[in-house]
């Protein structure tokens, strides 16, 4: 849900800052003294959505916790580009253990804090989609089930980018990766069941689950803020486009993150204790083609002849999300915004 101010203010709550609104309604990112949990000099590719997402989330969490934060990070791009010896880009207490154990390590951190009576310091575990939906899922599910006091953040770039763009359980249907080549009768990733981790998190009935996007900063920061107000297991799934893996221009990172939402392919919602609370309505609906076309991983859908059947199936996925989460505000009434 987007934070709205009552009076109209030019860019409203869509731009990072807004000189026309009260400072407390501006984002953490607009603050000259923001924490910069992930600082300059990291080795992420140009236009990295994950670098952006991590700073957005952690800065918001640091702001919410008066910087009393410990972060546990899975193996993956985020870890590799941030901490190659001898330099680290983190300005927050941070630890990397393994690829698949991030949630459990965070549980250990939280347990250590609890046992010493430190209620101020909060714990975030963060991983890419591989470290969350695939190799990290066992530990994550255990952490959910025990309701350990950890916010787990998945930065979903929809494939194993660090190892050279191989398919993960989060790779969307039809997407080309190094292990789902764009050839054969079913080019790209198969239209499988997918692994909807936000839904799985909701199924654990943990205190808080939300999806967010680097294109909707106010929404993202509000969700981090709410997550940090709560205790117990919490889950935030952030879509972070990867220019390299998606075959997109580095400048289009936020644009694609926005299109993913505006097409309905990536619904933004919040849930608590197993119930969906709200969804962020789409402002300007776009057909899935607007999102797919700028990405080379979907280029085969627009070849000669085009895979109109696949595009239609992807559109159906978007339409289903729009219906399920009422992303056009049809059930809630248009006046909700």
């Amino acid at each position: 849900m987007t934070e709205q101010t009552s009076s109209y203010c030019q860019v409203g709550s869509f731009a990072v800052g807004n000189r026309l609104v009260d400072p407390h309604l501006r984002t953490v990112q607009s603050d000259r003294l923001r924490p910069n949990a992930l600082t300059s000099g990291h080795r992420a590719c140009q236009g990295c959505g994950e670098a952006l997402g991590a700073r957005f989330v952690l800065d918001a969490a640091m702001a919410a916790t008066d910087r009393q934060l410990i972060v546990v990070n899975a193996t993956g791009c985020l870890e590799v580009f941030s901490t190659p010896y001898p330099e680290t880009a983190w300005q927050v207490a941070w630890m990397h253990s393994l690829f698949g154990n991030t949630a459990a390590v965070a549980t250990g951190v939280a347990a250590a804090l609890k046992v010493r009576g430190d209620t101020a310091t909060r714990v975030i575990a963060q991983a890419g989609d591989g470290g969350t939906v695939d190799i990290g899922f066992g530990c994550l599910s255990g952490m959910f089930e025990r309701n350990d006091d950890v916010l787990f953040v998945c930065y979903d770039n929809q494939a194993y980018m660090n190892t050279g763009v191989q398919r993960s359980a989060s790779t969307p249907a039809a997407a080309r990766t190094a292990t789902t080549e764009a050839r054969g009768r079913e080019p790209g990733n198969a239209f499988g069941q997918g692994k909807n981790l936000p839904a799985l998190a909701v199924a654990h009935e943990i205190p808080y689950v939300a999806t967010a996007s680097v294109a909707y900063l106010h929404d993202l920061e509000a969700k981090v803020g709410r997550a940090m107000e709560l205790h117990g297991a919490r889950y935030l799934h952030v879509l972070v486009p990867c220019p390299l893996g998606w075959g997109a221009a580095s400048r289009d990172t936020i644009r694609l993150a926005r299109l993913a939402c505006e097409t309905g392919l990536f619904p933004l919602f919040e849930a608590a204790h197993g119930e969906i609370l709200s969804a962020t309505p789409i402002r300007h609906r776009e057909p899935v083609e607007a999102y797919l076309r700028p990405q080379r991983r979907f280029a085969h859908l627009f070849a000669d002849p085009p895979r109109t059947d696949d595009i239609a199936r992807i559109q159906a996925i978007a339409d289903r999300n729009i219906g399920r989460f009422d992303l056009l505000g049809e059930r809630a009434g248009k006046g909700s915004r």
């Binding site: 009076s7 030019q10 860019v11 807004n18 984002t27 236009g47 952006l52 700073r55």
Partner: peptide
């Protein structure tokens, strides 16, 4: 005030902080 705020400030920075916020490299 409302009407003035509908201005897009075409072509000239109005300090919306977007560039500051969206840079992955700070």
């Amino acid at each position: 005030l409302f009407e003035a705020r509908r201005c897009l400030s075409c072509g000239n920075c109005f300090e919306c902080d977007n560039c500051y916020g969206v840079c992955p490299d700070n």
